[in-house]
Amino acid sequence: MSSIMKGTTDNGLLLPEPDEDGAPFWEFAARGELRVQGCADCHALRFPPRPCCPRCRSFAGEWRRMSGRGHLWSYVLPHPPLLPAYAQQAPYNVVVVELADAPRIRLVGNVVAAPDAPLDSVDPARLRIGAPLRVAFTELAEGVTVPRWLLERP
């Protein structure tokens, strides 16, 4: 995978800045795979990624493929003042998604109408805690792909 650019996209959206432990998450996302780090010894999943298992303290890690399904655990609708690129799309949603196959694993993202749709593409009135979601991947910049979420039943 090409190196992940730091900073912002051409239109001013922020790009992820992965560290050594989290880099595989972004590499899998670029391939359209949602994977979560797990312990190779006790098999506990963990997110965010880190070098040591908080359960058994093992340094043996692995990346397990997830189904890409989850549900809306929480959300917020940011309003200005925001960075200019985000203020133009406000109000948009920022969600916490609990994964169906790993109930204690929660990821932050956005619910959008389609993978490449703008952040404000879903009417906030359609968001409900517990709503079923599925992952979609969006290339924000060359070599930078992020997971976003689609309502399972639009």
Rank of each mutant, 00 (worst) to 15 (best):
M1C: 06
S2Y: 07
S3M: 07
M5H: 08
G7R: 00
N11G: 00
G12A: 13
L15R: 05
L15A: 10
P16K: 03
P16H: 09
E17W: 01
E20A: 15
D21C: 10
D21P: 00
D21V: 01
P24T: 02
F25K: 00
F25W: 10
W26Y: 12
W26N: 02
W26C: 06
F28M: 00
A30K: 06
A30V: 01
G32K: 09
E33A: 12
L34W: 06
L34C: 09
R35H: 14
Q37S: 03
Q37T: 01
G38R: 04
C39G: 04
C39Q: 03
C39S: 04
A40W: 00
A40T: 02
H43A: 14
A44W: 01
R46I: 05
P48Q: 05
P49R: 09
R50K: 15
R50L: 01
P51T: 03
P51N: 02
C52E: 12
C52A: 09
R57C: 12
S58F: 08
F59E: 13
F59R: 06
F59T: 07
S67Y: 02
S67V: 08
S67G: 14
S67C: 10
G68F: 04
G70H: 09
G70W: 06
H71D: 05
H71S: 15
W73F: 15
S74F: 10
Y75I: 01
V76H: 02
V76L: 14
L77Q: 14
L77M: 13
P78L: 08
P78Y: 05
P78C: 03
H79M: 14
H79D: 02
H79A: 14
H79P: 00
P80T: 03
P80K: 02
P81E: 07
P81K: 09
L82S: 04
L82E: 09
L82I: 11
Y86Q: 03
A87S: 14
Q89R: 15
P91N: 05
P91Y: 04
P91T: 14
N93D: 14
N93M: 08
N93Y: 06
V94T: 14
V96Y: 06
L99H: 04
L99T: 07
A100L: 11
D101C: 10
A102Q: 05
I105F: 03
V108R: 13
G109A: 04
G109H: 13
N110D: 08
V111F: 02
V112T: 11
A113R: 13
P115Q: 13
D116T: 10
A117G: 13
A117T: 08
L119Y: 09
L119S: 03
S121A: 11
S121P: 12
V122M: 11
V122E: 11
D123L: 07
P124S: 07
P124C: 07
P124V: 10
P124N: 08
P124H: 09
A125N: 09
R126T: 10
R126C: 12
L127T: 12
L127S: 12
R128A: 15
I129C: 11
G130D: 13
G130H: 13
G130W: 10
G130Q: 12
R134W: 00
V135C: 04
A136N: 02
F137V: 08
L140W: 01
L140Y: 00
A141W: 00
E142C: 03
G143T: 06
V144A: 09
R148P: 00
W149L: 01
L150A: 03
L150S: 01
L150Q: 03
L150C: 09
L150R: 02
L150H: 09
L151F: 05
E152R: 05
R153G: 12
R153Q: 13
P154N: 12
